[in-house]
Write a protein that binds this DNA or RNA. Structure first.
Lengths: 114, 114
DNA sequence: AATTTGCGTAAGTAAACACTTACATATATA
DNA sequence: TATATATGTAAGTGTTTACTTACGCAAATT
């Protein structure tokens, strides 16, 4: 049983740099230095971001000699999508139309009761 | 032209309390005190969360007398969904199957070239 | 064997965050 | 008109975040 709270996907993708990293390695695994080349910040900074991304399962590391290739495991993001999708009925245009219809019916019922 | 950086949806939903608030008001608009009743933290804390949520458009306020009703405008979340969806091809099972096939073809081509 | 390369990690820091309490203000009620 | 209610906001605080530089270590290269 690990004491430390597992990193959370929502928080992981909250940082713009981490989203950029995800975007970079989504297409192709890259080692740490290659990733760093695409940013202005230091290698240790990138290393720490990668650590966070691995801790919540978005990235997995494949060691190859002294290099560590970062591979995106983006199905983890479904946790976020799932959370959002449960609310889709509340902003889906089709639902809104239905909603308006139901409200109308409801209003009519109220009028009838009066 | 506003100088202050607009709050970002990714960061807004990163906080668990804010996700709970969204969940609460998704179904029904609520005023601030009613929302607060559902949490252990103080009213000002909730007020500040609501402020963040309004700043990024997830919540809109409808003043009604001295009360302020918080209404969820969840289509804002599509920004997050859209970002994630662009990567779906990388974790979709069907795509993976296709990917394996393409890799196989590629390997065969390489063999032929040799 | 010595050096270079690729990386993790520790320590330090400034800024942001998530709260709190205290207070101010506008609206509703008695 | 006095009081209660619903709320925003300022100020203070401890914690977390996103970096930095400095260092260490193992694998590859010379």
């Amino acid at each position: 049983m690990s004491i430390e709270a597992r990193r959370d996907v929502f928080q992981a993708i909250a940082d713009p740099t981490r989203r950029q990293i995800i975007n970079l390695i989504a297409h192709k695994s890259m080692n740490l230095n290659s990733i760093t080349e695409n940013f202005e910040i230091s290698r240790p900074a990138i290393s720490q971001h990668i650590k966070i991304l691995t801790e919540c399962g978005i990235v997995i590391i494949r060691q190859k000699g002294r290099e560590r290739f970062c591979e995106a495991k983006l199905d983890t993001l479904s946790e976020v999508t799932d959370w959002i999708e449960q609310y889709r009925q509340f902003w889906n245009e089709k639902f809104n139309t239905l909603d308006k219809y139901l409200n109308k019916v409801q209003s009519n019922n109220k009028l009838k009761k009066k």
